[in-house]
């Protein structure tokens, strides 16, 4: 009987080893371990054994049963794994097909530039001030030392609504309003971004509506070298540490002395090219020391206070920084243009 059990074990293990599918394993289980299986048959013949032999054979039969059961389980796990593997293989997909597109929005290029400049000056302690786009002649011109019939009013032919109301031609009226609001009583620094309007025909370089950012600092003992230092810091952060700046004398009715700021041309590194018209320099902003009349009209005593102001055009900066060559592109809102320039 002992031999019989050993034979059963060997046979069963061999069959399990050879089994290739779950069904065969099931058959093996029934054939050896089932109620009518080989082991049961052997056990049925135990009656003929001596009482001493019975427990020995019983124990052996159990052992054989356990070994076969274990082998079946092991094989079964192995077959399951193989089956799963085969199934996963059939589930392969084409990873080169496109994903489900997420709708992506983003800011307009001008907004990106305006916010970049805002953040840069906020970092230097400036507040952001805004004001109306329809202005009075007083705030747009007179408070800025541009009385009626001043020849410099020609520089900015304006969209008037009435004799006293017009679309602001620069954001400087916000400066006048801020000074008035602070009533000559405290130093301050501010920048004012916004839309401005000029009586121009739209073409590649002119737009009847455009954007401007102006800055104003009023305090005691403000020096022209402070303006130079501030603009240098701005230009290097905005255009790169390797840019050089150059200030030239200029003329604005609301500043004296006045300056025009150039930065060294990035395209040719100052050698001269078509972008900088051969000069190696690109005009980027205008500014100067606040004219004493402007301070006075704003309620600040020019004997105690001085200040500096500057202004620039985000469109121009965008055109230089990103090579946009038609100012109208900012206002036609071609989706291909907007997508190209946003960094979402």
């Amino acid at each position: 009987m002992k031999e019989q059990l050993e034979t059963i074990q060997q046979e069963a293990l061999a069959k399990i080893e050879d089994a290739e599918e779950m069904n065969s394993l099931q058959d093996i289980r029934v054939a050896y371990l089932g109620k009518k299986g080989s082991i049961t048959k052997v056990l049925k013949g135990m009656g003929k054994l001596s009482p001493e032999e019975r427990p020995v054979i019983g124990e052996m039969a159990n052992k054989v049963r356990n070994i076969i059961t274990g082998a079946i389980e092991e094989k079964s796990a192995e077959l399951e794994e193989i089956a799963l593997h085969e199934q996963l293989e059939t589930e392969a997909i084409d990873v080169t097909l496109p994903g489900r597109k997420v709708n992506v929005g983003g800011p307009h290029l001008l907004t990106s530039i305006v916010e970049e400049i805002e953040d840069l000056f906020i970092g230097m302690g400036y507040e952001i001030k805004e004001g109306p786009e329809v202005e009075t002649d007083y705030y747009n011109f007179e408070a800025l030392n541009l009385p009626k019939d001043h020849p410099a009013r020609d520089m900015q032919d304006s969209f008037y609504i009435t004799n006293e109301l017009l679309l602001r031609t620069h954001t400087s009226p916000v400066q006048a309003r801020t000074m008035e609001a602070y009533n000559g009583e405290r130093p301050f620094k501010m920048i004012c971004p916004g839309k401005v309007y000029r009586r121009d025909s739209d073409d590649a370089t002119h737009s009847h509506q455009f954007t401007q950012i102006e800055g104003l600092l009023v305090d005691k003992n403000v020096r022209m070298s402070d303006l130079k230092g501030t603009l240098d810091k701005f230009a290097k952060q905005m255009f790169g540490e390797d840019r050089e700046i150059r200030l030239r004398p200029s003329y604005f009715p609301f500043t004296e002395p006045s300056v025009e700021m150039d930065i060294s041309c990035k395209v040719c590194n100052g050698e001269g090219c078509s972008v900088c018209k051969g000069t190696g320099w690109i005009e980027i902003l205008g500014g100067g020391m606040v004219h004493p009349k402007v301070l006075e009209m704003g309620g600040y005593d020019p004997k105690i206070y001085s200040g500096f102001a500057f202004g620039m055009g985000p469109e121009r900066i965008a055109m230089l920084k990103y090579g946009v060559n038609d100012i109208r592109s900012f206002y036609t809102n071609d989706i291909r243009f907007l997508k190209q320039y946003h960094h979402a």
């Binding site: 507040e127 130093p187 301050f188 620094k189 403000v222 402070d226 130079k228 150059r246 004398p249 002395p257």
Partner: peptide
């Protein structure tokens, strides 16, 4: 200043007491 040369002016930063900037 212009005959002296704007180029010859130094670079400085305003000395005023630091206003804290920010968005409203």
């Amino acid at each position: 200043a212009r005959i002296y040369g704007y180029d010859n002016l130094p670079y400085t930063l305003p000395e005023g007491d630091g206003q804290v900037g920010g968005l409203n």
